[in-house]
């Protein structure tokens, strides 16, 4: 089994997953209550002729599978439809906001990896007092939902201390960094605690493993034992969990973008869902699923490279 066939099989799995997801997303929203034509017409009591015209324009009277096929073909050719609320192409709406959300996700992801891995490793290698302190701290952080954290952060850093802006996404790298710091922290906190706990467990497990005993019995310096045998072996499970956490961040942006008034994909999703702007909701749902599965596949491939016992690669 070589690397190429491994990659091909994973890619095929990715395509099938996305195909199934597209069907579920379209089918789910198709079955949702409410008449899309009435929403599109916008008025209180639209007359039947207008409704009929809208139905014809949006092909709402076609059979389900035909509508699905039309939508899917649009997605694949880069035309995910038209927003009923904004009256413009969904593609354009997403493109305007993608950079902000990507920046937020990358920022939060960097915080999670740096703080989660660092604190988890520290808790495992440090003394019992360090371990206990971090257990308490991570329990609290993990239990705090992002919208509560967001409110607290706004109160403390924006209102009381006035250190950081509380609204908007900023422009340019420095502006974004300044504006998105609080949203990124709010998004990252509970995930950081989770990654720290997983890291601590994995590192402690390796620390007490038999092969680390062998390395100690051979008189290797402590730093070499920790680096080559403890951290190296804990890397694969930690990376799997951190990767899945990062993949989940895309969905988490909805809450913090709303809380901090950041005009990104997450807040677009929330607003579109509230206004039943189906074309936008479907396109964003597909985007989130795609990002999740893509990250997931990358994580699997990386884990396989880190652990020679995973059979697919070699």
């Amino acid at each position: 089994m070589n690397v190429i066939s491994f990659a091909l099989r994973r890619a095929l799995g990715l395509v099938l997953t996305l195909f199934a997801a597209s069907f579920l997303i379209f089918g789910g929203l198709y079955a949702a209550p409410g008449d899309p034509a009435a929403l599109l017409a916008g008025g209180q009591r639209p007359n039947p002729e207008v409704l009929a015209a809208i139905r014809a324009e949006y092909r709402l009277d076609d059979p389900f599978l035909l509508q699905y096929g039309h939508w899917l073909a649009g997605l694949l050719t880069g035309d995910p439809g038209t927003s009923a609320v904004y009256r413009t192409g969904v593609g354009g709406l997403i493109a305007e906001r993608a950079a902000t959300t990507a920046f937020l996700v990358a920022y939060a992801g960097a915080l999670i990896i740096a703080a989660g891995l660092g604190l988890g490793t520290l808790a495992a290698l440090g003394g019992p007092a360090v371990g206990r302190t971090l257990t308490v701290a991570t329990s609290a952080a993990q239990a705090a939902p992002p919208f509560v954290v967001a409110t607290l952060l706004i109160w403390l850093f924006a209102t009381r201390l006035g250190w950081l802006p509380v609204y908007g996404a900023g422009s340019g790298f420095a502006g974004r960094l300044e504006h998105l710091t609080l949203p990124a922290v709010a998004l990252a906190l509970s995930f950081t605690a989770y990654v720290a706990r997983v890291t601590r467990t994995a590192v402690r497990g390796e620390l007490h493993s038999d092969h680390v005993g062998t390395a100690e019995a051979r008189g290797l310096p402590r730093a070499a034992v920790v680096r080559r045998h403890v951290l190296r072996n804990a890397a694969a499970p930690v990376m799997t969990v951190s990767g899945l956490t990062l993949a989940g961040l895309f969905a988490g942006t909805a809450i913090v973008e709303e809380a901090f008034g950041v005009n990104g994909l997450g807040s677009l999703l929330v607003q579109s869902a509230a206004r039943q702007d189906m074309a936008v909701v479907m396109a964003l749902s597909m985007l989130i699923v795609t990002a999740f599965t893509a990250v997931n596949t990358l994580v699997d491939a990386a884990s396989a490279l880190l652990d020679p016992r995973v059979p697919q690669v070699r």
């Binding site: 038999d210 062998t214 019995a217 051979r218 072996n233 694969a236």
Partner: peptide, 23 residues
Amino acid sequence: RRYRSGGVGMVFQDPRAHINPVR
């Protein structure tokens, strides 16, 4: 460390558990 690396060596019972599996 000097004692362990040069004075005394240990052969453990279960080599599968006592040899790092990812190296």
